[in-house]
């Protein structure tokens, strides 16, 4: 626990003392802002729903860039060796890093709080829906961070890790719109794998245990794969 917290702290420190986190924040907020603005300008609705789908897709591209350095860089600079020779379990390292990127996501999402403030100032948003939307988005971030970490653990080349993360996560998006390839019936099955159908209920104000299970299991699955990769890098 202490170790997880130490790693979380260290990662956050590294994020926020380098311009990296701020650039990410800026890029993300700009993208989200474009979607938010287009959403309200085109529909005139006091809701984040239009924005959320697009933001989740952009997170799919942004977050692997954020997590790519986690293991790739540590492998390269040798700090990974130090971590692994400390009396700290790989799981603690993993969870610490995952929590760190998730915390940064939280900061990014907090930044979009301005959008909610705008909605509340000019209109009357449904607060229940706003709350579940953010919950859904945070769960999505959890999946993307875990996927990004997994990609990062596979290589010690940061760029490859970032690209790999995007390639890894992309299917979660693409399988949701494969009906023209596989037909309606299979699409209904693939929708279980796809991310957006699970996010959709959150954006409507619904919390469904199956959706939560989807995000939680996917996150766990990626973290588990990362763990196995870290282990295997030692014996391969």
């Amino acid at each position: 626990m202490t170790a997880t917290f130490a790693i979380l702290k260290r990662e956050l420190l590294t994020y926020f003392v380098s311009p990296l986190a701020y650039v990410f924040l800026g890029v993300f907020l700009f993208l989200a802002g474009v979607f938010f603005y287009l959403g309200i300008a085109l529909t005139g609705e006091a809701s984040l729903r239009v924005m959320l789908g697009n933001v989740s897709i952009s997170l799919m591209f942004v977050l692997p860039m954020l997590t790519m350095r986690h293991f790739a860089e540590e492998q390269k600079t040798g700090t990974f060796e130090m971590l692994m020779t400390s009396p700290v379990s790989p799981v603690a390292i993993l969870v610490g890093k995952w929590l760190a990127s998730l915390t940064l996501c939280l900061v990014m999402l907090l930044g979009t709080g301005l959008f909610v403030a705008i909605l509340a100032y000019y209109g009357d948003p449904d607060w229940g829906v706003v709350a579940t939307s953010y919950l859904g988005l945070l769960l999505t971030c959890g999946v993307f961070c875990a996927g990004g970490l997994f990609a990062s653990s596979l290589t010690d080349d940061q760029v490859a890790a970032g690209m790999g993360g995007i390639v890894l996560l992309m299917p979660l998006w693409l399988v949701g719109s494969a009906s023209s390839l596989v037909g309606e019936e299979w699409q209904a099955r693939l929708d279980h794998l796809a991310l957006l159908p699970h996010l959709r209920s959150f954006t409507k104000g619904v919390i469904d245990t199956a959706d939560i299970a989807y995000f939680a299991l996917l996150t766990f699955g990626f973290l588990f794969l990362t763990f196995r990769t870290l282990e295997s890098r030692r014996w391969r």
């Binding site: 130490a6 260290r10 590294t14 380098s18 600079t77 400390s86």
Partner: peptide, 19 residues
Amino acid sequence: PLYRELTVGEYLRFCAELR
């Protein structure tokens, strides 16, 4: 094994926690 972005103190304090 150094984290280039951190200061000496920050780094050693982190190591102390890890240890």
